[in-house]
Computed example of a mutant assay.
Amino acid sequence: MPTPRPWQNRLALPAIAAPMTAVSGPDLVIAACRAGAIGAFPTHNAPSSAALDDWLGHIRAALTADSAPVAANLVVHRTNRRLPADIEILQRHGIELVITSVGSPEPVVGPLHDAGAQVYADVASIDHARRALAAGVDGLILLTAGAGGQTGWANPFAFVRSVREFYAGPVVLAGGITDGRSILAAEILGADLVYLGTRFIATHESMADDAYRAALVAASLDDVRLSTRVGGIPASLLASWLDRAEQDAPPEASPDTGFNQDRLLSNSTAWSAGHSVSGVGAVTSVAELIATLVGQYTAARHDSAGLVTND
């Protein structure tokens, strides 16, 4: 049996419905939490800090104490002008989990801990992981090759095992998690939780439009390309969207100058997708998707009894 993971008694599945720009909103978060997966969304998906306040109030009213936790993703990069206001709102609402990305979590860890939040950090290298831990985070989200949107480059097998050489706390594996069997494989590898993003885009509750959902159903991992076009750092995108975008404005019109929050938001209609897109066969509800994943995960555990360990 795996070691106890955070919030284990409130989860039907050791999974986070990953926060995705222009995709994750209150409906997706509520549905995921009700079905037993951590529901996450980027704070910048709310059109303003005041709207974020409303979103969190609506989400809290729709859930019970037994629901899975809500996680807010906070871009901590210096170009995020809403950062101070969004932090204050997260503190006031008593958010349980905050996921930091694109920058050092150090300035926000203290204030969020004071408000009772756990802080997990996106990391894409061993150096990132060590620096995040030195900043005081409570868990690590390992961005590996194949993750949708802003992604990593490392092999997940090597990355997880390297991190486990020096860190025994919560680890979330992001990148290419397709089904219940791959969730179990991540646990055997040493992860406590997994990120699933692409699978949740093709749900009725996501904020993706119908054309985006249909493109995911039709795509395979061969249709995913890396590009810095959207936010200034490498991201996994559907080639069909990227080809159209490059026809409308050649890449030279958007020089690579590193991450910029405004650049990310100006490309919020981008069609992100990870390598797990090959597992998207239909548009379903969040509840149906999680029930399918739970069934696959349970069957895989039965087939692999005695193999799971989280050392």
Rank of each mutant, 00 (worst) to 15 (best):
M1C: 14
P2G: 04
T3L: 15
W7Q: 09
Q8P: 07
Q8A: 14
V29G: 03
I30W: 08
A31W: 02
A35V: 07
G36I: 06
I38K: 09
F41P: 08
P42N: 00
S48K: 10
S49Q: 13
L52G: 12
L52D: 12
L56Q: 11
G57C: 10
I59P: 11
I59A: 09
L63V: 04
A65N: 13
D66F: 11
A68W: 10
P69M: 07
V70S: 05
H77T: 04
T79L: 09
N80D: 08
R82I: 00
L83W: 05
P84I: 06
P84H: 07
I89G: 11
G103S: 02
V108H: 04
V108L: 10
V108T: 07
G116W: 13
V119D: 05
V123L: 05
R130K: 14
G136I: 09
G148L: 09
G149Y: 05
A154M: 12
A154Q: 11
V160R: 01
V160T: 08
S162I: 07
R164M: 10
A168C: 13
A174V: 02
G180I: 04
I183D: 05
I183P: 02
L184W: 09
V194D: 06
Y195D: 14
G197K: 00
F200C: 07
I201D: 02
H204F: 11
A208H: 09
D222Q: 14
R225S: 15
L238S: 07
A245S: 12
S254V: 15
Q261F: 13
A273M: 06
A273S: 11
G274W: 02
H275Q: 13
V277W: 01
S278D: 06
T284L: 11
T284P: 09
L289N: 03
L289Y: 06
Q296W: 02
Y297S: 08
R301A: 14
N310M: 12
